[in-house]
Design a protein around this nucleic acid. Structure first.
Lengths: 195, 195
DNA sequence: TATTATATATAACGCACGTTATATTGTCAA
DNA sequence: TTGACAATATAACGTGCGTTATATATAATA
């Protein structure tokens, strides 16, 4: 390197991340990034091959932000925290949520579901104090509970994201999730007692 | 009129509708419509003020197609039919579903929820033979059941639309919906017995 | 100090879009 | 038959995009 760059890779990604948070993916253009950086578009290309690569990086950043939302200890129930964090992310980071799960259908076919499902499952170690009541279910029952909860959570997140629900307060969201989880759980146990 | 038009309004709308079904809203351009029509772009403008107006018309057509899906008598339960039709539409008309509920967030904030909710509610007349078991719930319980079912249905539709679910067969979808509905219903009745 | 490579700026290319200006056609009315 | 007007075709305008060609400046190296 014969020349130190004045615009770092981080600066570029951060500027792009600011833009996507504010205006969504469609607001992320090379010219818009350059404008925010106070530069031309060239520094972008010296650090990033193409916007496609930049998109990948933004997806990583957005995903890790979502993960951070999901790992906050809102309640004592890890499962509930994962769901609640997901919905709150959809509410408070509308553009990022849209970017991850709505804007680009083809990319995330394989990402959306496994991410969430694995996250759920990773909390099922016997040491976990949070998901205790889940252990009362058979493994198939656990999986079903997770799946139904995840479907409901996803639906709730969508509706919250688009403002289709009347109220979006923490309290209301939490109640939805708790009630639905309880309903699925009771249904599951009822099933097992029968069969 | 001194001249009969060779390209009718219907032809234009139909061509656009074919395009959106195949390639989504982004595939609907004046040039693409013209190409399918075998014409230039001018006939479009003689029947339609702008693409914005055309978008509205397409939204009407897509909505009425969705409604048609929801009114088919898949089962004896009207409520279930509405939900099932919604999910099947999301599965079989991927682009139309995306157009209505995913592509354009701002427009449908006020449309998505009420449409579905009203449809649910319109089935609750005392004459309706389909929703009988619902009448056993209090009005607040009915509304809650509808809301939770709708959230779940919406989430399921999203996941089915993006192919995130393993299987998309009628049977699997129906089972999801029946189980979730049952769970919510049981939870609701349990609640009422307590309180 | 002279050279060289790199970072950046400027400008342009090619593309696709909605839309519009202009030309052409064909049919109805006189 | 002729003139006028509406429907359509052709072509262009303006915009915004990703990307690239070219020019310039600046700092490390020889």
């Amino acid at each position: 390197m014969k020349q130190p760059s004045v615009y770092s890779y981080e600066q570029i990604i951060n500027a792009a991340f600011e833009l996507i948070r504010e205006h969504g993916w469609q607001g992320v253009t090379t010219r818009a990034i350059a404008k925010r950086l106070g530069s031309s578009t060239m520094p972008i290309y010296s650090h990033v091959k193409s916007v496609e690569e930049l998109e990948k990086e933004l997806r990583v950043k957005a995903s890790s932000m979502l993960k951070e939302f999901q790992q906050r200890p809102y309640t004592e129930h890890t499962l509930l925290n994962l769901a609640f964090g997901y919905v709150v992310f959809a509410r408070d980071e509308k553009q990022l949520f849209r970017f991850l799960y709505l804007d680009r259908p083809r990319r995330l076919d394989l990402e959306a579901m496994p991410d969430m499902k694995d996250a759920f499952f990773s909390e099922f170690g016997a040491d976990s104090t949070a998901g205790q009541e889940l252990l009362e279910l058979k493994e198939s029952g656990q999986e079903a509970l997770i799946q139904y909860t995840w479907i409901f959570t996803h639906g709730l997140a969508m509706l919250v994201n688009s403002g289709a629900l009347g109220s979006n307060s923490d309290k209301v969201i939490l109640e939805y999730l708790k009630n639905a989880g309880e309903a699925f759980y009771l249904w599951g146990t009822g099933r097992e007692e029968q069969g």
